[in-house]
C-alpha cells in the first residue's frame, strides 16, 4: 500500500523507514499525505524507499518536495533511497534531483 512504515529497525537512532507506494499520482495523493502526516510528528529522521514507485505525477513530486521543505524547516532529516527509474525520469524533467538527499543504503 502507500507510505508504509517498516519494521522499526532504526528506531534506536530515531529514523523512520518508509516504503513509498507504487502509485504517487493525484489519485492517491490525499491518502499518501494522510499517511505521511501520521509518522511525521513521531520521528526526526526519515528514509523513504522509492523502489516500488511505478507512477508519479506532479502531485507526487509536490508531496516529496513538501516533506523535504518541512523537514528542513523543522530541523529534521529526509533521505530518499533506491529511487526507481520512473521517479528519476520525472526528477530530471523538473531538474530537482539536487533538492533531495539520496542514499543507496538500506
Amino acid at each position: 500500500m502507500s507510505f508504509t512504515k517498516r519494521k522499526d529497525i532504526k528506531k534506536d537512532i530515531g529514523c523512520c523507514l518508509l516504503d513509498a507506494s507504487p502509485d504517487m499520482t493525484i489519485y492517491s495523493a490525499e491518502k499518501n499525505l494522510i499517511e505521511i502526516k501520521e509518522f511525521y510528528s513521531e520521528f526526526d529522521s526519515f528514509e523513504i524507499n522509492m523502489s516500488a514507485v511505478e507512477e508519479i505525477d506532479i502531485s507526487g513530486v509536490q508531496l516529496l518536495l513538501a516533506i523535504n521543505k518541512s523537514t528542513a524547516q523543522d530541523g529534521k532529516k529526509l533521505v530518499l533511497s533506491k529511487v526507481s527509474t520512473s521517479v528519476v525520469e520525472v526528477m530530471d524533467v523538473l531538474n530537482i534531483r539536487s533538492h533531495f538527499n539520496w542514499t543507496n543504503q538500506e
Binding site: 502531485s59 513530486v61 518536495l65 524547516q73 523538473l94
Partner: peptide
C-alpha cells in the same frame, strides 16, 4: 537547456492540499 522548479509557494506538510498545484517553473 535549463529547468528550474520553484518551491517558494509550496506550503509545509501540515498546510498542503495535495490536489492543488503550487510549483513554478
Amino acid at each position: 537547456i535549463s529547468m528550474t522548479t520553484l518551491t517558494s509557494d509550496l506550503p509545509l506538510l501540515q498546510d498542503i492540499n495535495p490536489e492543488e498545484s503550487y510549483l513554478g517553473f
